[in-house]
Design a binder for these strands. Structure first.
Length: 573
RNA sequence: GCCAACGUAGCUCAGUAGGUUAGAGCGUAUCCUUGGUAAGGAUAAGGUCACCGGUUCGAAUCCGGUCGUUGGCUCCA
């Protein structure tokens, strides 16, 4: 029954009812727009004094009384002229502005009780059908989404068909809050940000977070070398001449600049020009191609202060970047290779993903033939891999088509992660060449690609996805050895030493506390294996095994436990 | 960058009609305790109440500014 369309109508009606309530409580507000959105609805208002949280409660109460009176939603139509007159009379300047986009159309309105709004619909039959809603937050929003326009006050709310659905949604919000990587990052001692002393948007990786990162980096490097990539390093500081050649300087890319010996330098916001420098050190033959260069390149971008968010949106971050330089004829094979690599790496973390193909935008560089050739190669690669994809027409970058990948995390949120972009622009700007089999000099095709996007962002996503309980293979500590009393400490140290000798990560809880306390503490740290040793275990050369997920598993010989953990690590469990 | 809310110990939070030495829990340190699967006990240390300025006899509390955080908007090659 409650299809997407029904839910949409429900929420849209909720936004009308909210606007009606706001109108009643604050007669001077002017109406902006009020659509249904993915998780609810909002309405924008022009008002002299911003709304407060207390106002939300009052508005909710008012809404409930409108719902109680079961006002019917009635549709009626006016000509453009009549509509204009009507809205002028209502004194709704913003609505009048919207009307201008519909000059040659019949204009539809919806009326319920004393409230009438310019609206395409559809709506509920009457206000009494809104059973479950909640107002969530107040925010500023530019009129018509343009930062040059004035800022309106937006109220967000959500509505569902049933109270249970609403409650489930609110519970999910709470669950997301519990998993917040900023909270878990501090609790699990993974990273910190020192906004005041060291600057916002810059991440400090603690020892425990660094282990996770290092293990993933090693995996990433090995996998790339297996796939024919060469690892490189390039400088962070580059003279602006290079950013002028790349075009970033002219387009005022948000970079950091400094002056050295009278020359202007920029901190790199991306790695591609560096890789191009390496390419250009030799005359390349078609026989040398494809060249695949990979770098975990740390870049800095001057992001606006308001967009910074934990590890997910920062000013300094490390891209798992790579560039492939190839001939047009090699493009398909290279794309196939990249799609396979993405599948391997994302699959290791257990992520399902969805591909999106973005085609040529209105403003673009490059010839028609190139765009067609590249777009076809991307399509063909996706088809050959049997990868279903959604096409985003016109959403490509100005320099070439791209494929993006979005993953779904443990609580159903989607994150844009990997991206693969064909580039016709930079090879020309940097005059990159190779000598083809016909003896002619040609520009290679360049592919930019990142799988995690950035380590910082990926780490943030991983923390939230796993709720801090990292898979055994990349967990900061794989095992903690817990003595029951002080006299078992030496034995526990021996056990930890053996585990480490096997290439695993283990620590000993040496604190003078009871077993229950240490278990609780290890459990909170989400350590996969807790190995307990008392008199019995010492005597038998065993440890009692407790896993963070399954609890007490009983005693086992130390070597057996080590083998079991090793087996899981090998399988990236 | 824009709109709004917020900023008290390492963490989570009390504390305002402006009035001596600003509180609690967790965590930390020391001592007692040597305990068998999610918190044993005692004592102690720890705060320029974000910062700067103003109002006042007196400011954590009121006002202004700055910085930062949060939720949005814009942006996100």
């Amino acid at each position: 029954m409650s299809s997407d369309a029904d839910l949409h109508a429900l929420r849209h009606s909720a936004s009308h009812i909210m606007a009606q309530a706001v109108r009643k409580l604050f007669p001077n507000v002017k109406l902006g727009i009020g659509p249904a959105i993915e998780d609810g609805f909002y309405y924008d208002f022009k008002t002299g004094t911003p709304f407060t949280t207390d106002d939300l409660k009052k508005i909710e109460t008012e809404m409930k009384s409108i719902i109680k009176s079961k006002e019917a939603f009635e549709r009626f139509e006016l000509s453009y002229g009549e509509a204009k007159e009507f809205l002028a009379k209502q004194n709704e300047p913003l609505k009048l502005e919207l009307l201008e986009d519909h000059r040659d159309e019949t204009i539809s309105f919806y009326r319920n009780g004393d409230f009438t709004d310019l609206c395409a619909g559809p709506h509920l039959e009457h206000t009494g059908q809104l059973k479950a809603f909640k107002l969530l937050s107040v925010a500023g929003a530019y009129w018509r989404g343009d930062e040059k326009n004035e800022m309106l006050q937006r109220i967000y709310g959500t509505a569902f068909a049933t109270k249970d659905d609403l409650q489930a949604y609110l519970t999910q919000l709470e669950e997301a809050e519990k998993r917040d990587h900023r909270k878990l990052g501090a609790e699990l001692d993974l990273f910190s940000i020192h906004h005041k002393e060291a600057g916002p948007g810059l991440i400090y990786w603690h020892p425990r977070g660094s282990i996770v990162r290092r293990v993933i980096e090693d995996f990433w490097k090995n996998t790339h070398e297996d796939h024919g990539y060469q690892l490189v390093y390039t400088p962070h500081l580059v003279k602006v001449d290079m950013w002028k050649t790349s075009g970033h300087y002219q387009m005022q890319y948000p970079m950091y600049f400094t002056e050295i010996d009278g020359d202007e330098y920029g901190v790199k916001p991306m790695n591609c020009p560096g890789h191009i420098m390496i390419y250009k050190t030799q005359t390349r033959s078609y026989r040398d191609l494809p060249i695949r260069q990979a770098e975990m390149g740390t870049v800095y971008r001057h992001e606006k202060s308001g967009v910074l968010h934990g590890m997910l949106r920062v000013r300094g971050f490390t891209q798992d970047d790579a560039h492939v330089f190839c001939t047009p004829a090699q493009l398909l094979d290279e794309m196939l290779g990249i799609l396979g690599l993405i599948d391997t790496i994302l699959g290791t973390f257990g992520f399902q993903y969805q591909a999106y193909l973005s085609t040529r935008p209105e403003k673009s560089v490059g010839s028609d033939e190139n765009w067609e050739m590249a777009t076809n190669a991307l399509r063909e690669a996706l088809d050959k891999k049997g990868l279903p994809y959604i096409e985003d027409p016109g959403e490509g970058v100005f320099y070439g088509p791209k494929i993006d990948f979005k993953i779904k995390d443990a609580i159903g949120r989607t994150w844009q992660l990997s991206t693969v972009q064909v580039d016709f622009n930079l090879p020309e700007r940097f005059d990159m060449r190779f000598i083809d089999s016909d003896g002619e000099q040609k520009h290679p095709v360049m592919i930019h690609r990142a799988i995690f996007g950035s380590f910082e962002r990926f780490m943030g996503i991983l923390i939230e996805h796993f709720a801090g309980a990292f898979p055994i293979w990349c967990a900061p500590e794989q095992a903690i050895v817990i003595p029951i009393a002080d006299r078992h400490l030496d034995y526990c140290k021996e056990v930890a030493k053996k585990i480490r000798a096997a290439g695993l990560r283990a620590v000993v809880d040496e604190r003078n506390e009871k077993l229950g306390y240490k278990i609780r503490s290890a459990q909170k740290q989400k350590i996969p294996y807790m190995l307990v040793a008392g008199d019995k275990e010492v005597e038998e050369g065993r440890v009692s095994v407790r896993t963070r997920a399954e609890g007490d598993q009983g005693a086992a010989p130390v070597q057996e436990v080590i083998d079991a953990i090793l087996a899981q690590v090998r399988e990236f469990k």
